[in-house]
């Protein structure tokens, strides 16, 4: 059965992902030096930035699979898109929660309506809308097509988020690693960040594989019972 293969792939991705998460925690709490100006609160950066990276990647997958779904009409592409969208929303939630925890100490406020924070919140709303739109129409197929269009349009917010710190007057710190002249941070900080990026990416793909298996099982089972695809399971459950 293909689902067994998907589960095996999920486990194969999860094992190195969990190992890298353990390494990341050791690096963050015992190895990497404390940043001079911000102090210990800067350590939130090692989960905040990887979460943002994974969220952007997930929404990139949503946009690519949605475009291919509209073109080819292959249900598997829609299943991959909804699986990635669910993960993307959760990782954006992490970004939106860990950011204010850092900002309370660094800026003295939990939240400010500055360009990067506002455009990130907008991204979260767009993809929550994507998940809600799928079940909001009478015809599941029409809901999927509407959501696919939103999934493609939503990706336009990501360059805006990335460039907002240079285009507008922004409180948010500038990039310290992805700079044209190379990383400006201490090498141990860059290594810790790269560990976080690798760990979060592997964990995302591991969990997304299971989410895809769930979507596929739901659609296949309902097709076998009723001859028509069932509504997506997005947003259901715990």
């Amino acid at each position: 059965m293909q689902l067994t293969g998907l589960r095996r792939t999920g486990v194969l991705l999860a094992i190195p992902g969990i190992a890298l998460v353990l390494l990341l925690h050791w690096q963050v709490f015992f190895w990497v030096p404390t940043e001079v100006t911000m102090g210990v609160i800067q350590r939130i950066y090692y989960v905040h930035v990887p979460s943002a990276w994974v969220a952007f990647m997930a929404f990139g997958i949503v946009a690519a699979c949605s475009a291919a779904y509209l073109w080819l009409g292959d249900e598997r592409l829609d299943m991959a898109a909804v699986s990635a969208a669910e993960g993307g929303v959760l990782f954006t939630t992490i970004v939106l929660l860990t950011g204010p925890l850092w900002a309370r100490t660094a800026w003295g406020t939990w939240w400010t309506w500055e360009p990067r924070l506002t455009s990130t919140l907008l991204l979260w709303f767009i993809y929550v809308g994507y998940l809600l739109l799928r079940g909001a129409t009478d015809s599941p197929q029409r809901g999927k097509r509407f959501a696919a269009v939103l999934g493609i349009l939503g990706i336009l917010d990501i360059p805006l988020i990335h460039l907002s710190v240079t285009w507008f007057r922004s409180l948010h710190p500038q990039a310290v690693v992805m700079r044209p002249e190379g990383p400006q941070a201490d090498p141990s900080m860059v290594i810790t960040l790269l560990t976080g990026l690798a760990a979060f990416t592997l964990l995302f793909f591991a969990i997304m594989t299971y989410r895809y298996a769930l979507e596929r099982l739901t659609v296949e089972r309902s097709t076998a019972f009723a001859g028509t695809p069932a509504p997506s399971v997005a947003g259901g459950g715990a």
């Binding site: 925690h25 609160i41 992490i94 929660l97 459950g237």
Partner: peptide, 28 residues
């Protein structure tokens, strides 16, 4: 306060990811 905020941030991350896994497992 910064120490508490760092710990809360890390706890939130793993609670959200664990919650996602549990949610998928329950639906499956």
């Amino acid at each position: 306060r910064p120490y508490w905020h760092v710990f809360i941030a890390y706890i939130l991350v793993w609670l959200i990811l664990f919650g996602w896994v549990v949610s998928i497992a329950r639906r499956l």
